[in-house]
C-alpha cells in the first residue's frame, strides 16, 4: 500500500510540475508583464528598472526555478490590478468557494445516491420514471440558465431567498464562514443547488446503472436463495458494490464542481475564487490567473489521491490483493 501511495504521489508531483510550467509560461506569453504594471506615461528608464527588479532579463530557466521556489512558499507575486499579494487575495476568497463546493457536493452526493438507489430498486414505478425524465433536464441545461431560472423563481418572484452575494459571515481567524447564520444559509442555497444539479444527475444515473448491474450478479441471486431480506440484499450487498465505481466519478466530479463554480459564482455574484478568476481574465491579471491554475490543479491532484486511498478502504480485493 505504501508503495502504491508513493507511486501516486510521484505521479502527482509530475502533474504539478507540468501545470506550473504552463502557468509560468502565462507570464511570458500573455502580454508584456511590464506594460501591465506601469502606466502609459512611464519612461524607458522606469521600464528597464522594473524589468531588472522583476528579474525578467535572467535566463528562462533561472526565472522558472525562482517561480517554482516562490510557488512552494505560496508566493505568486502582486496582482497587476489590485497591487496586493496574490496568495492573500486567494486566501481571502477561498472560504467562499470551498463552502459553496462543500455544500453542493453534499447535496449532489446525498440526493444523487439516494435517488439512484431508489430508481435502481423500484425501476418500474412511475416515480422512478419521472425522476429519470427530470434528471435529463439537469444534464442538458447549462448551469447559468438553471441559475438564472432559480433566481427568477425564488428571489424575484417568490422573494424567499436573496438573488446574489454572500452575507451573514462570521470570522474565524482568516476563515470567513457563512454556514453559521440563517442569512448565510439563505444566501448559499441557490448557488449550491445550481452548482450541484449537474453532478447530482450524473451520480444518480451512475448509481442507478451500477445498482441494476449488481442486481444481476450471482451473489445477489445467491443471497436471495438464502432467503435474506430485501433490505439486507439492497443495502448490505448491492450498495457497497455499487459504490466502487461511483467513488471514481465522485473524485473527478468534486474537481469539476470547483471548475464549474466559475460560472455559478458569476451568475450569483458569489465572492469566491471563481469570480476573482473571471475578473482577472477581464483585466489580464496574469499572476492571479497563474495562481488559480496551480491552485485548481493542486485540488484535483489531492482529491484523486484521496480517492485512490478510499479504494483501499472500500475494496478488500485491492487492499488484500497479492
Amino acid at each position: 500500500m505504501l508503495f502504491f501511495i508513493l507511486k501516486r504521489l510521484a505521479q502527482s508531483v509530475l502533474v504539478m510540475a507540468i501545470v506550473s510550467a504552463v502557468s509560468f509560461s502565462l507570464f511570458n506569453f500573455v502580454g508584456d508583464p511590464v506594460n501591465n504594471m506601469v502606466g502609459q506615461d512611464a519612461t524607458r528608464e522606469q521600464r528597464i528598472e522594473i524589468r531588472q527588479q522583476l528579474g525578467l532579463d535572467d535566463p528562462i530557466l533561472t526565472q522558472y526555478t525562482r517561480f517554482l521556489g516562490n510557488m512552494m512558499r505560496g508566493d505568486f507575486g502582486l496582482s497587476y490590478r489590485i497591487k496586493r499579494p496574490v496568495d492573500e487575495l486567494i486566501l481571502e476568497r477561498l472560504p467562499a468557494t470551498l463552502e459553496l463546493v462543500f455544500v453542493s457536493a453534499i447535496i449532489a452526493l446525498f440526493v444523487g445516491i439516494t435517488l439512484g438507489i431508489y430508481t435502481g430498486i423500484r425501476r418500474k414505478s412511475w416515480i422512478s420514471r419521472s425522476i429519470l425524465s427530470v434528471s435529463l433536464v439537469g444534464v442538458s441545461l447549462p448551469t447559468f440558465i438553471i441559475g438564472i431560472a432559480l433566481i427568477y423563481v425564488f428571489a424575484v418572484h417568490l422573494r424567499w431567498l436573496p438573488s446574489s452575494g454572500r452575507s451573514g459571515t462570521i470570522e474565524f481567524g482568516w476563515w470567513k464562514t457563512s454556514l453559521l447564520t440563517v442569512d448565510g444559509w439563505r444566501a448559499i442555497i441557490l448557488p449550491a443547488i445550481t452548482l450541484s444539479l449537474f453532478q447530482l444527475t450524473l451520480i444518480l444515473r451512475l448509481v442507478r446503472a451500477e445498482m441494476l448491474e449488481v442486481m444481476q450478479t450471482d451473489f445477489i441471486k445467491f443471497a436471495r436463495a438464502r432467503g435474506l431480506s430485501e433490505r439486507a440484499i439492497n443495502f448490505r450487498h448491492a450498495l457497497r458494490n455499487t459504490l466502487v465505481p461511483v467513488i471514481t466519478i465522485i473524485g473527478l466530479n468534486i474537481g469539476g464542481l470547483i471548475a464549474f463554480s466559475v460560472i455559478t459564482e458569476t451568475v450569483f455574484q458569489w465572492p469566491g475564487t471563481g469570480l476573482m478568476f473571471i475578473q482577472a481574465v477581464d483585466f489580464v491579471d496574469v499572476p492571479i490567473m497563474a495562481a488559480y491554475l496551480v491552485f485548481v490543479a493542486l485540488l484535483f491532484v489531492l482529491i484523486n489521491l484521496i480517492v485512490d486511498i478510499l479504494y483501499f478502504i472500500v475494496d478488500p480485493r485491492i487492499r488484500l490483493g497479492e
Binding site: D218, F219, K221, F222, R236, H237, N241, V244, V314
Partner: peptide, 9 residues
C-alpha cells in the same frame, strides 16, 4: 467466483 459478495468477509 461470483456467488459470494466480494466486499464482505
Amino acid at each position: 467466483q461470483t456467488s459470494l459478495n466480494p466486499l464482505m468477509t
